[in-house]
Every structure is written in structure tokens, then in C-alpha cells.
Design a protein around this nucleic acid. Structure first.
Length: 314
RNA sequence: CGCGGGGUAGAGCAGUUCGGUAGCUCGUCGGGCUCAUAACCCGGAGGUCGAGGGUUCAAGUCCCUCCCCCGCAA
């Protein structure tokens, strides 16, 4: 007899895990995700990816405002053996954690205890990691502090940004989740506490964190660009940098100076060390395009500082 | 009706205010120059101006309708 499971998640990252549970034959009694919010152009209500997936499989969906308050009763009634979370976005109280008899397993997109927090993939990229991974762990009251069950490493490819990497990690995480649950059922699942001394925590990303510090090295700005895309995006002045490369540059220009800007060579911006060569970019209100394409129709003055970052509110 | 930008040559844009021969940068094709080049010079091809309707002697441009794309916001 298969376990009765309740899945909790919201964005794309959770979908592969949910699908894996269903496909592996678990009895997914219900799905929790965050309340629907108006989003998208036109401010339409859009169902989150996890909810769409649940509906497609005919699984009941619950969307508590605060799971530790109005989610308690529904969860209790579902009487799960086990809960699985994947980027759910709600902090679970002890009361909630106590409901499933086998506990709550979280699928975290980093090699814990490194990169605890809500944006592990972004930060791993920003820090220039070449290897990251996924961890299944027992959720406790802390922020990603519970005991580690299983881990799997995933290589970071040079062409990765947060979007592509999250995607890959989500799929690996789904596999690891099933492997973990099988082991739990057999009573063979490994389990070890996290080593606090090796732990690191990184905060949730905010829109304003996307502003580039052009005083940093080109290498760092490159990693920053990868980590901040597709959201919130890495901004150099008024331009969103989608893809960039670090180039050597000897010169005394101030960071932020436009070094090259034409349809042949593309856009080069002076960094604290080296030059940031912008490959793909997006101007305010415009669509994403190659820097060379952009420069065919727009003038940028070489020698000037990059863009008047139109500042304004947030 | 949340706010806003846009659809013109293969790519990126200007031209629309005030209707009057379709323009720029790049690419492409041909030729030239050069030890050489992503350099430079000369020449050519390539456009139902998102779709439909209307006004007009004349519409990319003015009026109406529709389709599509994108940014903010999340």
C-alpha cells in the first residue's frame, strides 16, 4: 500500500516533484500552494504552475493564506502519512509539521548546509560555484536546517542562468525525492544532521538587488548576470543585461564607461577589473535582443558612462 | 477595463506632429583597394509600411475595427 502524501509547492520548481510523486504511484491526497494573485499583463488571475499541474491530475488544491493558521485543519483532514515541500514559500509551524506521522520532506536546490534560504540557485551562480545540487531533508522549524537525507551533485554549465539551472535541479530533485521516499518506506533512508559550522544562508532576492555594481570585476558581473536572470534581472544603468562575457581590458577608464558600442563589436562596458562584454540585453520597454542588433538601431556614445539609470520609484 | 511601449527590406531603427517619389545603420550580392582585415571605396538586389474598412486627386502618415508582440507590476 502506497503512502498517502500531501504536496506543497508553488512555482515551476515544484512541478517535476509533484509529477514524479503521481507517476511513482503515491496517493497524492492534496496539493497546497499559495493563493492565486493577479499577475501577468492585464492583471489576470493566473494559477501557479503547481496548481495547474494538480488540477490537470484531478487532485484537490488548497490555498491557505498562512498554512500555520488556516492550513492546519485541511491538512489534518487529509491525514497524510507524509508531506513533501518544494519551494512552497510558507513557513510551517511545529503544529503543521506534527500532522504527517512520517514527517515532512523538503526538496532543496542546493547542497545543504550551504545555501540555505529561498534563492539558493541564484546565489550559487552569483558566487561563481561550478557545482551545486539538490538535497532532500526533513523539514524542521528552522530555515532549511533539518536533517539531510540524500543529496545529489549537479554541475553548473557555463551557459547556465538561474532559469536553466533551476530547471535542471528541479528534475534531479524529483528523482531524488522518489529515491528518498522509497528508502523511507523501506526503513533504509540515511539521515544526518547538518554541520552548522559549514552552513550558509542567503536571502530572498528583491527587484532592487538586480542593480549591478560596476566596480566589481567583469568576472563577478558575469556570474551576477547569470544568477539574476531571468528574475530579477541584472541592470547596468537603464539596461537589463541578459547575457555577458568577461573580457580583458587595460585602460584607465572609470567603471561604467562605455568602451565599445557598435554593431560589429557589440557593447563593452568597463568593470572594476576587465570589461563586461554584453551579448544579450534589453532596454526599458523593449524586447530582449543581441547587443549587436540593438546597436544597429540605437546610438550609444563611446566614452560616456552607461545610461542614465532612470531611477524612479519602487 | 491596472499603467505603458511597439509592429516600416534578412536584423535593429527613423519617418507619422503638419498626407505628396520609402530612408538610416548592419547584413547580403557584385566590383575595387590592401601584405592583410570585423578596415576603406564604388555599385546592386531586397519592402503587400501587422490585417481589414473609411476619408482623399493622393495615406506609412488622418478616422474606425481587429490581430500580434513586449515592458512595468506580481
Amino acid at each position: 500500500m502506497s503512502l498517502r502524501v500531501v504536496f506543497m509547492g508553488t512555482p515551476d520548481y515544484g512541478v517535476p516533484s509533484l509529477e514524479a510523486l503521481i507517476q511513482a504511484g503515491y496517493d497524492v491526497a492534496g496539493v497546497f500552494c499559495q493563493p492565486d494573485k493577479p499577475s501577468g499583463r492585464g492583471k489576470k488571475i493566473t494559477f501557479c504552475p503547481v496548481k495547474q499541474c494538480a488540477i490537470a491530475h484531478g487532485i484537490p488544491v488548497f490555498q491557505p493564506v498562512k498554512t500555520r493558521v488556516d492550513g492546519v485543519e485541511p491538512l489534518r483532514q487529509l491525514a497524510p502519512d507524509l508531506c513533501v515541500t518544494a519551494a512552497f514559500g510558507h513557513i510551517l509551524s511545529q503544529e503543521v509539521l506534527d500532522i504527517p506521522r512520517l514527517g515532512t520532506v523538503n526538496v532543496h536546490a542546493s547542497l545543504l548546509p550551504k545555501y540555505r534560504g529561498s534563492a539558493p540557485v541564484n546565489w550559487a551562480l552569483i558566487n561563481g560555484e561550478t557545482v551545486t545540487g539538490v538535497t532532500t531533508m526533513m523539514t524542521d522549524k528552522g530555515m532549511d536546517t533539518g536533517d539531510i537525507l540524500m543529496q545529489r551533485q549537479v554541475a553548473v554549465e557555463p551557459g547556465d542562468n538561474a532559469g536553466t539551472l533551476v530547471d535542471r535541479l528541479a528534475r534531479v530533485g524529483a528523482e531524488l525525492l522518489i529515491e528518498t521516499l522509497r528508502a523511507i518506506e523501506n526503513g533504509t533512508c540515511p539521515r544526518r544532521p547538518q554541520i552548522e559550522a559549514e552552513a550558509s544562508y542567503y536571502p530572498l532576492l528583491k527587484k532592487e538587488m538586480g542593480v549591478m555594481d560596476l566596480g566589481k570585476s567583469a568576472r563577478q558581473l558575469c556570474d551576477f548576470t547569470r544568477g539574476m536572470n531571468p528574475w530579477p534581472g541584472a541592470y547596468a544603468g537603464a539596461y537589463k543585461v541578459l547575457e555577458a562575457r568577461a573580457e580583458d581590458w587595460a585602460g584607465t577608464e572609470a567603471p561604467g564607461t562605455i568602451l565599445k558600442a557598435d554593431a560589429k563589436q557589440g557593447l563593452w562596458i568597463r568593470a572594476g577589473e576587465g570589461a563586461l562584454r554584453v551579448l544579450r540585453m534589453q532596454a526599458a520597454g523593449g524586447k530582449p535582443m543581441n547587443a549587436c542588433d540593438y546597436l544597429r538601431g540605437h546610438q550609444m556614445e563611446v566614452g560616456a558612462l552607461i545610461a542614465p539609470d532612470k531611477t524612479d520609484a519602487e
